[in-house]
Design a protein around this nucleic acid. Sequence first.
DNA 1: CGAATGTTTGATACGTTTCAATCTCTGTGG
DNA 2: CCACAGAGATTGAAACGTATCAAACATTCG
Lengths: 294, 294
Amino acid sequence: MARPHVRHAVAIQPVDISPLLLSQPRRTRPVTSRGVPLPQPVNDERVASATPLHRSLGRLLSLTPAEVLLLNNLQKTRYRVRRDQDVVVHGYKYDSLFVLNDGVAIRYNVTHDGRRQIANFVLPGDLIGFPVCLFENAICSISMLTDASVTAIPLERVHMLFRESPRLAEAMFWQAARETAMYVEHIVNIGRRPAYERVAHLLLELLHRLQIIGMATPRSFELPLTQEVIADALGLSVVHVNRTFRRLREGGLLNVEDGRFVFMDVEALSRLAGFDGSYLARVPIPGLFALDMH
Amino acid sequence: MARPHVRHAVAIQPVDISPLLLSQPRRTRPVTSRGVPLPQPVNDERVASATPLHRSLGRLLSLTPAEVLLLNNLQKTRYRVRRDQDVVVHGYKYDSLFVLNDGVAIRYNVTHDGRRQIANFVLPGDLIGFPVCLFENAICSISMLTDASVTAIPLERVHMLFRESPRLAEAMFWQAARETAMYVEHIVNIGRRPAYERVAHLLLELLHRLQIIGMATPRSFELPLTQEVIADALGLSVVHVNRTFRRLREGGLLNVEDGRFVFMDVEALSRLAGFDGSYLARVPIPGLFALDMH
DNA sequence: CGAATGTTTGATACGTTTCAATCTCTGTGG
DNA sequence: CCACAGAGATTGAAACGTATCAAACATTCG
């Protein structure tokens, strides 16, 4: 397993905690992370209409103009977060459910002996803070893999949303279900598959998810995934991930050049890994697609 | 890993599919499971007021009398399900989000080479079908560990709920978040902990969850968990789980007699496993506890 | 240029799986 | 009432996948 002598997750004493991101900052246990959020609000003007959140919820129902407005009001401040920075730190309290506009993040946890496990990846349009920020103390940390743009949705506005737009609230619920389904698949992946299937499965899931949001070609995507990140996501050691890549490369299945992952044979790889992307597909909400606003 | 030559998950051709549980029954891939649901509706009268669902949502907000009624209307038919029977079968379509009234269930999946991975355990009051039934095809199977009682909540009533009771809908959303948090912890557990920590962590989580719903004493609980079930939940082999139990027993930490799990030293075991149950705690919904019905 | 980050490879150690066998218990049919 | 089959627990021996340790290499960057 990676991180025997912690390397990435350098323990830094939280110093400059902004009241914008953190509410009632407090630490319940030693927090191991690269740092704390240093938000840089970009603008407070209403966000433009075509945000990634619109697009991700728009895949679940057709948004009315009123709903587009409502979603805009939901999103308050926008922050720019730099690569390797933490948006959410394990153990702190938050009062916002953040949305990722741009960039890629990871949800992760560190065990008591310093090993990191990445729970999953956050892509544009995803609700960063689900379920992490919905507890007294954030249940894991969230760190950026790239420079990113994040929008805060205060929890009281989420609360309002349930009164003011049942449709959007329900869409959010189904969106959460889709997220949860990915966790389930991840558990199966880590629990019952050998290393090369795990790697293949993870990369295929990312390929599909990125394709849905237009961030991947049919056979490739580009992300700054180090082998250590992949190892920590799959419960493997960096060394073994490296050897696994070699096997996949030599088998003519996958090429990694720089930050670009090129799938030589998606079909074969899917068969190899037992990958079935239907859990990523658009979910049909009964009675909701009919655009039955009132 | 368990289930090299499949033993439990005997492949049975789905035969007697009841239109009550399954809507548009269809199979997208070879379904490996012990059987299909054979629902036995108990009564269609409105369920008594103090159901496990009331209690689990009641931990998130104080229910008004009107809300109690609404929850009763939500729950339509009640079924009795026998031990080892599947309530939900991977790949089928469902139009209900079931609630577990009584008994214990597992959500599981079978890989293409026949290994079973249990995603998690379902306890009374939990939403069985989240997120499993919220897809075109159920993303995993759900099987009973004990004889059980299950109530169907048709998805269109869930849909109605979002219009008729924002508070209950929101409670359901937060309940879903709590479920998801357990998946996250499970991933960390499987991905980055050695066998004996995994076993300890899993059993501690169950102890806490069962205590919350009054099904465990401070130091023990009783469930028909075979070593194979535990192995499949943790991504281990049965043999190794057995040896791990021995170590825990010899270490004076845990005793298993028949179906009763006795924790000799909860504190020590928690420290050993790095267990912190705060992700199981009651979550405070901003602005919701004030019982602000309108 | 040197420090830091990430990749790659080899040698070795170890945790866990697999295979195989025994043992206990429980329910069941003769 | 006993014999027997099946499920589950238990133990040993050997094989295997993966981790760990260590070192070299490539790249980037101040």
